[in-house]
Computed example of a mutant assay.
Amino acid sequence: MIRYPSLQAGAVMGTTAPSSGVPTETHALLKLAVSRMESKGFKMVCGDTVWTQAKAASAPAKVRAAEFNQMMADESIQLIIPPWGGELLIEILENIAWDQIKNKWILGYSDISVLLLAVTLKTGIATAHGTNLIDLRGGVTDETTGKWPEVLAVQVDESILQHSSSLYQKEWNFAEPSPCVFHLTEPTCWKSVSGADVHMRGRLLGGCIDVIRHLIGTPFGDVRHFQQYYTGNEPILWYLENCEMSVTDLRRSLVQMKLAGWFHNSAGLMFGRSAANRPVEDYTVEDVYRALSEELQIPVIYDIDCGHVPPQLTFINGAYAEAGLKAAEGSGSVKQTFKP
């Protein structure tokens, strides 16, 4: 059965950098994000790793793992939220004290999704794929991203419904900071491969394909064991997003996941928007989605609010979800139930 943490009002949030830390020149952004969280009633504990960055990581792997282990062991901390993603989180997995993982929330995305997926697959503890700390520095937060505290406060056997956003951000504009950090200018439109309405049900799993694919074949990526041991072989509903891969690399990675058995007994696939999904010759991302849907005989929806093209919904790894798409309207929703 799945175990769900619970976020209380005024909780202590620990921020550590299991992947990349924050370079000196952007410390002001982190300090502002911490201040915003404190103004909302949270108590903040910052680890040493969040303030440093060298050689593509915040610190050596054992140092990063030790600080994560320390925050995981600290009974006062209810939520661990890294400042942002990075490149080398996978280095710390072998140094995590897996027998001491506590039932507390870990929230993040990008490279952090390696940690999220590994924790849920290995321990059956739900983890939260959503915003990072740096993106919470704005004076206001958009409705889609801003729902994360409400999602993390849901109790066992309760449900929460999230809807597709109205607008998304096409590109970052650091020269003109927005009060809500993101510049939401483009109409959101969820789509399906079939062009028809879609309704899917299953246990949520997912993350950034660029990095979670590297869990395949390791002790931290046993999807089949997770299904059998923690969910009674309920179907998996995958949410996935592409950060930097070419369309052909995306296709290779998805085929690898399929051949590794990750898509066995799947209810459907949901793909986030991506600025990387540019055609290779005349081969498009829609071709990739269509092929996968035909091969697996499951529905596929795409351009959902997930990942590196904000805003994004908060997806709970391990939760039972019902996802729907009204194709004519381009609108969708995800209802998550904290089912043990």
Rank of each mutant, 00 (worst) to 15 (best):
E75D: 14
N95D: 15
A65K: 07
N69K: 02
I96K: 05
M37R: 14
K55Y: 07
G47Y: 09
L88T: 01
A56K: 11
E91I: 02
A97D: 12
F42N: 04
L93I: 05
P60H: 02
I81T: 06
K102G: 04
A73S: 12
K55P: 00
D99G: 01
I80W: 03
I80V: 13
N69T: 02
I77N: 09
P60K: 05
E91T: 04
P82W: 06
T49I: 03
V50P: 06
R64S: 14
F42H: 06
I96T: 08
K40T: 14
F42R: 01
S39G: 14
D74A: 08
I106S: 00
A66L: 13
E38T: 11
K40C: 15
I90Y: 11
M37K: 08
I96W: 05
E91Y: 03
Q70S: 12
Q53A: 06
Q70T: 05
V50F: 01
K43C: 09
I80Q: 04
E75G: 03
M37Y: 07
L79C: 02
N69L: 15
K40G: 12
K40I: 03
M37C: 04
E94K: 15
K43T: 12
N95R: 10
K102H: 14
L89N: 01
E91P: 02
F42S: 00
W98N: 02
W84V: 03
Q78P: 04
I80P: 02
L93G: 12
K40D: 10
I101K: 07
K104S: 10
S76Y: 09
A54V: 02
Q70N: 06
V63S: 13
W84N: 10
V45W: 03
A56S: 07
V45P: 14
I80Y: 03
I96D: 09
L79Q: 01
V63K: 13
A65F: 10
K62M: 14
Q100E: 09
